[in-house]
């Protein structure tokens, strides 16, 4: 098991270099001169542009730019944005906010999704099940920004329970409403996954045997049905960690949150290579780690899965 985890960590090295290289190349290949774009319609003196180019290494060939960036990376220097802030600073500000938002969303979707899915699966074909299916279908089909605006309107403006926008520091309390919006689609998928999995396991032979042993219904469901049903749900949650960390652009936009999504979006439009690449590299690492976590959780949930080689 330890060997397996170690091997997976080693695999992250080529993934890291491959991803950063590709992203750096894409930013480089985007047409237009980022420095000229900074000054808009009033071009500065030619000497100034040359100086800035040299400062950001934009005058060197692509491969040298990339190697210089990687070299800096190993010295803890992720480069600077065009406005002069160090990328490390920007990351230190944006990632904790997004991480908080993602964790809240993950907790909400996992907790409520599994409970609703479990009850729906146990009462397959009954009213609760039918309503859960209809609601989850609605959440999946309605775009996130619609859900976002509707909740913002009801809870922020009509009821006044929450702030419509999140302040700069983004404390936990203010993030609850955005987290609900962010979690809504995944919640719907988790309900459906859990429901199908529970309904499936209820018909399993070992569940009948457990009942025949004289166990109470409650114990049969919690011990023998739920744990077996969680494997597909855990897979989904693991993949979702990644997309929650990255895909919050819409939600962050609606609630004016200063997180990862917005920062990367602005950096892409400005052509700030080091910023984009650094953010994406961290996202890639989060993705790979989340997948590793899922694989290890599998083994914990299902003893038949053991990673030897």
């Amino acid at each position: 098991m330890l060997w397996y985890a170690g091997k997976r960590f080693l695999q992250m090295i080529p993934v890291f270099f491959g991803a950063t290289f590709l992203i750096y190349f894409m930013v480089f290949a985007v047409p237009g001169d980022p420095i000229a774009a900074l000054y808009g319609d009033h071009p500065p003196a030619p000497g100034v542009i040359e100086t800035i180019r040299a400062e950001y290494n934009l005058d060197k060939p692509f491969i040298i730019q990339y190697l210089l960036y990687i070299g800096g990376l190993f010295q803890g220097d992720l480069g600077t944005t065009f406005s002069g802030r160090s990328v490390t600073d920007v990351m230190a500000q944006a990632f904790p906010i997004t991480a908080r938002l993602a964790m809240l969303a993950l907790a909400i979707e996992a907790f409520f999704g599994i409970i609703v899915g479990l009850v729906a699966g146990l009462r397959k074909g009954k009213l609760f099940d039918a309503s859960a299916l209809v609601i989850s279908l609605l959440l999946i089909s309605v775009p996130t920004f619609v859900v976002g605006f509707v909740l913002q309107f009801i809870f922020g403006i009509q009821l006044g329970w929450a702030r419509t926008t999140v302040s700069g520091a983004a404390p936990w309390g203010e993030l609850i409403l955005p987290a609900i919006v962010l979690a809504s689609v995944s919640f719907a998928y988790i309900v459906r996954l859990t429901r199908a999995s529970v309904a499936d396991n209820l018909g399993a032979d070992f569940v009948r045997t457990a009942t025949a042993k004289g166990l109470s219904r409650r114990r049969v469901v919690t011990v023998h049905v739920l744990r077996n049903s969680l494997v597909p749900v855990v897979t989904y949650l693991g993949v979702d960690i990644g997309s929650l960390m990255v895909g919050a652009i819409v939600t962050e936009g609606i609630f004016n949150i200063n997180g990862v999504g917005g920062t990367v979006y602005r950096a892409i439009t400005l052509g700030e290579g080091p910023t984009v690449v650094s953010f994406v590299a961290v996202m890639v690492i989060i993705f790979v780690l989340a997948n590793l976590l899922v694989d290890l959780l599998y083994a914990a949930l299902d003893p038949r899965i053991r990673y030897a080689n």
Binding site: F206, V207, A212, N228, P303
Partner: peptide, 15 residues
């Protein structure tokens, strides 16, 4: 007491 038919599917694989 009850002894079921198929020993392969009648024990919970995760316990």
């Amino acid at each position: 007491g009850y002894v079921p038919q198929d020993p392969m599917s009648n024990l919970n694989p995760v316990w």
